[in-house]
Structure formats: C-alpha cells, structure tokens
Nucleic acid binder design. Sequence first.
DNA 1: ATTAGCACTCTATCTTAATGAGTGCTAACA
DNA 2: TGTTAGCACTCATTAAGATAGAGTGCTAAT
Lengths: 348, 348
Amino acid sequence: MKLNDRKLKILQAIIHSYITSAEPVGSRAISKKYELGVSPATIRNEMADLEELGFLTQPYTSAGRIPSDKAYRLYVNGLLQRERKIMKEKEGMKKLLAQEIGEIEKLLQNSAKILSKITNYTSLAIAPQVKESKLKHIQLVPVDETKILVVIVTESGLVKNAILRVDNNLTTNHLNRISNFLNSKLKGHNIANLRNEIEDNLIKEMYKFKNTIDSIIPLVNQTLDSHKGDSLYSEGVTNIFDFPEYSDIEKAKAFLSFIENRDSVLDMLINTGFNDIEIRIGEENNYEEIKDCSLITATYRFNGKTIGKIGVIGPTRMEYSKVISVVRSLALVLSEIADGDKYKIYLK
Amino acid sequence: MKLNDRKLKILQAIIHSYITSAEPVGSRAISKKYELGVSPATIRNEMADLEELGFLTQPYTSAGRIPSDKAYRLYVNGLLQRERKIMKEKEGMKKLLAQEIGEIEKLLQNSAKILSKITNYTSLAIAPQVKESKLKHIQLVPVDETKILVVIVTESGLVKNAILRVDNNLTTNHLNRISNFLNSKLKGHNIANLRNEIEDNLIKEMYKFKNTIDSIIPLVNQTLDSHKGDSLYSEGVTNIFDFPEYSDIEKAKAFLSFIENRDSVLDMLINTGFNDIEIRIGEENNYEEIKDCSLITATYRFNGKTIGKIGVIGPTRMEYSKVISVVRSLALVLSEIADGDKYKIYLK
DNA sequence: ATTAGCACTCTATCTTAATGAGTGCTAACA
DNA sequence: TGTTAGCACTCATTAAGATAGAGTGCTAAT
C-alpha cells in the first residue's frame, strides 16, 4: 500500500488536530475542520489504511485515531527538510539574554527560562563539560593561613573554584609564582589530561613547591567531577501539568521524578547525538520513564566546537514546528554569544 | 471549658493517628489503638469538646475528626519544650557531609539531599546572603586581553565570580597590585557597603587605575544581586506525591509551582524568623499557595552569627517530632562545619 | 461521670442505564 | 473503480439510583 498524497494530507491533519486538542481524532472532525474535499467515509477508509501502515493507533475499538511515534517522525522529517526561516524571535532572544552579565552558567539558566516560557514545555540546558574543555587560566588565590583557592577558567568560558588546604603558609608572592608557572605549562591543554602533563614536566622545575603542586591536580580533578551535576539547568517542569496526558498523577510523578534526578537527565542529554538538532520521539528515547515524551535538543558551539546543549521535553504530541525553530534559534544565539566576536553583547 | 489531661491525651492520639494515616480519625479507632481506658462514647464526647475548642475539624457531619492548625501548634510546642536529645543521626550526617570537598554551595546542596532523604519531605536550603557577608579576599585574575575575572571570597565561605571587560590591557602585575590594594582597603568590610568605601578612599590613591577600579564595584554589586537566586537549594520536591492530600493534581501543581519559583521561596525563607528553629503551620504561612503546608526551618551559624537556613516543607500532617530533630541536628552539624575549627572535616 | 444502644447522616462504592462519538461494512452511485 | 450515504455496532463516559458502612449525637441506664 502506498502513502499517497491524500493519505499524507489526512495524516497531517490528524497530527495537527491531535497536537492542539489531545483528543483522539475522528473522521467527521477532520472532514469538517480541514478542507480536503472528501467525505468522512472516505477519510475513514484512508484512516484504516494509515492504521494498517502503523501511522495511527486506536485507544479502543470505536474511538478516534491517535498518531503513532512513526507518524510524528514522518511529520518531523518533513519539517526538517523545509528550509527553516530565521526566526524573528532570535533578535528578541538576544536582547533578553544580552541583559545578562556574568558567566556562562547564568546565561544558560536564562536560556532555559526563556525556552520554557516561549514553548510552554519543560526546558533543559547543559553547560560545557569542563573535562572536555581546555584550560585558559589557572590562578591560586590566598584565602587565609591554611586555605588557598584555585580558580580555573576554561576556553569555553567556564569558571570553577576549588578550595585547597595547605600546611605550609604560602605568601601571595609564592602563589603568584606558582600560578604563573602552572599557566605557562598548562594553558591550552585539555583538562582531562592535566595529571599526565604535570607529572612529566612540573615537579622537577618547581621542586620547592612540589607538595602544593602535587595536591592541586587531584583536587582540581575531584572538583570538576563533583561539579558535573551543576551543569544542568531545567525550567518549567510544572508546565507538564498543563497537558491532559499528565492529568494522571502517576504519570506526572514519573515525569517529574525523572527530571528531578539530575544525573540521569544529564546522561540523557550527553548521550543524544551532537547533530545540529536532535529529535527523540516517544519510544526512540532510551529512558523508560519518558517513553511517551519527545525530546528536542540543539547544540551550541564555540569556535565551531560543540560545547553544550539546550532542549525541550514534552509529550509526543508536541508542537514540533514551533519548538524546533525556537530551540534551533536559541542555540544559534548562544553560539554567537559564546563566540568571541559577539561576547561584548552580554558583557555590556 | 478546660483542656484537661484526658482531652490532651485524646488529641495527641488523634494527631498521631492522622499523621500516619491521613484519614479522618473516629472515636472507635482511638479507643482501640490507644490505651486510654475509656469507651468510644466517652471519646466522642471529648472530641465534640475539642472541636468546640477549635482543635479538631470535621470534613462533613458524620466523618471522623481532623486536627486543626491549632492542634498541631499545641502538639509542636509540647515537642519543643521537651529537651531534645542530641540525635544519633548527627554523627551519620557529619560523615555523609564530610565526604564533600569544595565550597559551601556544594555542602548545602548535599544537606538538602540528606534532609529530603531522611524525612521524605521536600527540603530547602539557603546559602549565606552574600550581601550581608564581610569580604575576606578579593582578587583580579587576567583571563585574556579584554577580560578580567573578579573573585570574591567572603568570611562566610562563599566564593563568587564576576567577569569584567576592560579596554586597556592590564598585565598580571597590574592586576596583582590592584588586588593587593583592594584587599588592604576592603578586607573585613561589609559587602553591601563596598561602594561607599571605595569612593571615599581609593580613587585618589590609585589614580592610574581609576577606570578599572571604578567599574569593579558596580559590577560586583550587580553580580552579587544576580547570584541571589542561586543560593536556594531544594530536593525531594516529588516526595509530595507520596501524600494522599496531594493526589488532587491541582494541589500538587500548586505546590510544585510554588517551589519551582525560586524567588518566592527565597523570600519566604528569609522572612521567617531567625530563631534556632522556626515552625509555620498551615495558615500561619504567609503564602497562599502553601496554606495547607507546614514549614520547619533551622538556622545555621558561623561564629555565632546567623548565616543561612535549612528546612523542610510538607503537609500540615507532618511528622513534627522527627523532622524537628533532624532539621535541628543538621543545622548544628552545618554550623560546626562552617566554623573554622571543624573545617578540616570536610576538606580532607 | 461514664457507657451502651440506636437512629441518623453522609460519603464512597457499586450497578445499571443512557448517551454519544466513532467505526466498519454494505450497497448505491458517478 | 473510487467515493459516499446509511446504518448497525462498539465501547468509553456520564448520570442516576441503590447499598453499605463508618461515624456521629443523643438518650437512657449504670
């Protein structure tokens, strides 16, 4: 059986109707609302075919039809093929974000807020994974007699702090010398490899501060690990209550619990591919808890290099068209801001 | 009418029963489960009195009784009066927290996790309000030609970063000189007053760097403001689903939306008093959305000075006895950790 | 002052019936 | 051969009615 033009149109109509109403769609409703020029009976026949082809399902014998994941997939692929117009929203987003001073974390949190506000779904955002970043600057700062603060700035714009306890009292001068030294040796290196770097080069040259330097690297690694969970931002989780598919409290709970568990969400986001835009529909998701959700993520880049992701999660009945364009636009804006040239935008 | 001993016992029994079952309590059930040595009929009479006194309510004419806020208040005051034994849990908590390296933010997040895990309610924690802290150290760190990083360490243990854009290229040396200068002038001063301090003293002395210094203070203030929302941590928000009073989806939504709105929660926590332990029962809360919740908060201190709060929020039918002792213990542990002497605990 | 007994109240639950949206099939039609 | 009108049939949802049961308040006896 072939998926001819009329079937496609009918399927599209059903998807559209279901996305807006969340109710199973009947043949009469379709023939009324969408001008297809055929009678409900004809539509019924086509619908039976579409069901056989796996694009529609029926919750029970004589109810209307509901689009399957396969149908959404078809629909979405169609959307993707069409050249997406650059959103007008983009400028607005930039303005909203431009007000923000500070670091990338703040920027992402605001992005998430904007995303959930515009889409009315739940939004997610992850910061660059610090372990995959290159070191831009490292600085030791005295705090008091027994503590020094290690500040790490990555090329991706992250700033991380770690507190280090030391036995011997190091003067500001000492710390500056060590900082300078570490910088000259480590700048531009991948943070995940710090340990190796250090062992080969440093210890002999800075014999005097061997102990201090020795303890910095493990601490830094440890800190970066413990900060992993911080890099996730979500907003609008309670938007889920606006969708009738979550009026079942058990379902709402399952969804919210999933989102509340930062680790699994972080995993999920990292493990979806890093294409420009990634879409997981229903069963395409690897996590049991969200098999009836769709996830749309986009990657933002810096110097052409992937550094993080933003996304939206909601029921499979999602306003794909809108969400795809919003997520994509915002990711572009973020990339532009993250990239050096436009950095000014959000610093002034 | 007097609240004699028997009435008190019966009230206590009703509260206890309702806390565990969430079902209106009948006279027969009380007489069976609790050994009061009187018949259901007697209990009925007493219950009628207790209702008249405002300690009990009836959802409808012939249902069992439910404790009122007033009843919980009485019950809780009784709990508070009794000298609370130092919890055994305290040691366990310390161990859990001791694994943590890093700064106070991380510590609080973990405290919130522990709190919600132990109590099965929703937990809240706020970090010290940076504006009320005194400056311990300020350091300017070069990032690249056009950006410097301002690192602020407060006496309460907070570390905050702000990125500052500069036009003139300042060398590490310059920055160190400025840092030293700022430190010598500002250390120990209240952060909220930074601006005044600076204008009186600094500018003439460091004429050369006037521009840089001029721009630092507003930026710092701005950053501290924008970080305000970061200082709230909540965990276990989905625990609310375990309580039958929130099986109504609208109620669950209202609660979760309230918690999701960081600003209002932050306000709420700041505006409850700063006694050792604060308890708001039902209508005692100033926020409409949580008029059927109870909030239990405790203050943790540093050098005897109030710096932050942790707390638990849940239905008025709360396990007050347990929660009070857990929250109080954890606050004590936090105070001990925050205080210098014991700082080692969580750094090693 | 306490308690047993009993009529009464009101919710929750179960049953049954009615409603109606939507289908699938058949037969007629262009 | 594709399209459509008509109609019987299915099944969830809703409403109405009936029943059960928990719990009370009152009265009268102890």
